[in-house]
Design a protein around this nucleic acid. Structure first.
Lengths: 113, 113
DNA sequence: CAGACGCTTAACTAGATGGTTAAGTGTTTG
DNA sequence: CAAACACTTAACCATCTAGTTAAGCGTCTG
């Protein structure tokens, strides 16, 4: 229900989060938008390498890029993050008590395909 | 606090979850332990390919393998799943209201490295 | 105890990922 | 308006990933 088109969304979201650099960017952007340059300054790699990481986050729908003058502002997009969170929520719900909701959800939800 | 040794744990957990086959296995195991053969029967790939997926889940600490006779029983291990869930919880906490806890956590937690 | 069963390991391949340097594009500033 | 700035794109390379088939290894069963 997050987005009408949710085919391989979780795959790309979890894939994007499976890298420490990208998780650091997400964590950093929780405080608010920052430019690519500002974010890049905190990571020991070339600009092009960092740009690619941002690209992965953008492709996964986790970050939005917006040109501001000659800088590029990155903003966190909560939707994709929330979707991944919801998936894990359903899995962990089993141990945290609300089993019924879990079962119901698992029985008629197919997830990908 | 999930596990004493948590270096690149999130990287491997999210990496393991970034594959539809592996997510399907996790979802399936929520109901309880199953053998490799039973799980594999639901996926259109060779046994060795599937065994490798199980291996990835085991390496990430998401699944435990246990030999039972000539079959192998797979059990879901909630700890790693809970850790990933907690990370996303902290990120999404920002939009769900409990900002203070988030800020406090982000300021002195370093995550990986 | 020979052979089927259940799974894993080995060896290989195609394509994705994560990094590099060099060159290109658009925006500001001296 | 030339030069510096802030990225991005292109081309390349090493390593990882996800699949394949073939062979191996322990466990049951006729």
């Amino acid at each position: 229900m997050t987005d009408p088109a949710a085919p391989a969304t979780l795959t790309r979201t979890f894939g994007a989060l499976s890298d420490p650099t990208r998780r650091a960017v997400v964590r950093r952007l929780v405080h608010g938008p920052l430019t690519v340059g500002t974010l890049a300054a905190e990571h020991a790699m070339s600009l092009p390498a960092f740009t690619k990481h941002i690209g992965v986050l953008v492709d996964a729908g986790l970050v939005a890029r917006r040109k501001v003058g000659r800088t590029v502002e990155c903003t966190l997009r909560p939707a994709a993050l929330a979707e991944a969170h919801a998936w894990l929520d359903d899995m962990t719900a089993f141990w945290t008590g609300s089993l019924d909701r879990l079962e119901a959800l698992l029985d008629d939800t197919q997830e990908d395909r």
